[in-house]
Amino acid sequence: MGWAIALHGGAGDIALNLETERREPREEGLRHCLEIGVAALKANKSPLDVVELVVRELENHPHFNAGRGSVLTRNGTVEMEASIMDGRTKKCGAVSGLTTVVNAISLARLVMENTPHIYLAFDGAEAFAREQGVETVDSSYFVTPENVARLKQAQEANRVQVDYTPPLQKEEQIPPADGESQIGTVGCVAVDGNGNLAAATSTGGLVNKMVGRIGDTPIVGAGNYANSYCAVSATGKGESIIRGTVARDVAALMEFKGLTLKEAAAYVVESVPKGTCGLIAVSATGEVTMQFNTTGMFRASATEDGHSEIGIWHPGQC
């Protein structure tokens, strides 16, 4: 028992020789966000507040694909999405298609708390943001030079594969242009000393995605889920995570099959195609697990008994 927290900055084909100037700011970002989360848990903030706080911080960090630093659609625009869920009440909120909201995760929380709905998208979500008075900025704030270059690269590499006019085989699409284009999503899961759980996930989506594309992140049960057993945030190839109902399945395996958190997470990560998925999860009893079938996952975790780690690749590598 005791509190626990885990967070991620995306899973994918992260080169083992990732340049120092790209690795270090992310490691630093993970460390910074972990410290913020741990401090908030120690100050007895609720897990729901903690995951929102940490994901806001990850969104504000330009090196992760969410908020500022979001990857770009085919048209060079940003369309962000996010969701949040409270394990005790199973209340949840989600947003998609945001173009001006600084912190998508906080708007998801407002959808959960201040509307009769769970999920608002595109113009309706933007109108709700203005009505609620959350911070909005010009869309250009979210666009980083690195992502402009990444889109150009992706479009040059994928012009044929991603165009949906000719028939295509789904599994072969969206090859990573620079080995990082599939690294999307940030997330945080937390449990307090009383076993209250919460999960939050946020993303800019997939490089060169079609305008209007919705991935797994805002889908309750796919990219994000929390109940009285555990809280889960997933990252990777959205289409695989949706069809695998990944986040719900970790909880369902604990609930219906009696597996432990680690067993359930391993089972789910094993059951989706290799190279498509990573997840972080905490249980009501304060266990934490971070598993992935990709080359790497930017991740960090800490528990009340003093354990703390930050990692990118599988243990034993680098």
Binding site: A121, Y164, M210, G212, R213, G238, E239
Partner: peptide
């Protein structure tokens, strides 16, 4: 069947419909 994605919404979905 015909897009690389699983879910399209609002104007992007309408554009896909026209295409």
């Amino acid at each position: 069947d015909k897009s690389p994605h699983s879910y399209l919404a609002f104007s992007g979905a309408e554009a896909f419909a026209r295409q």
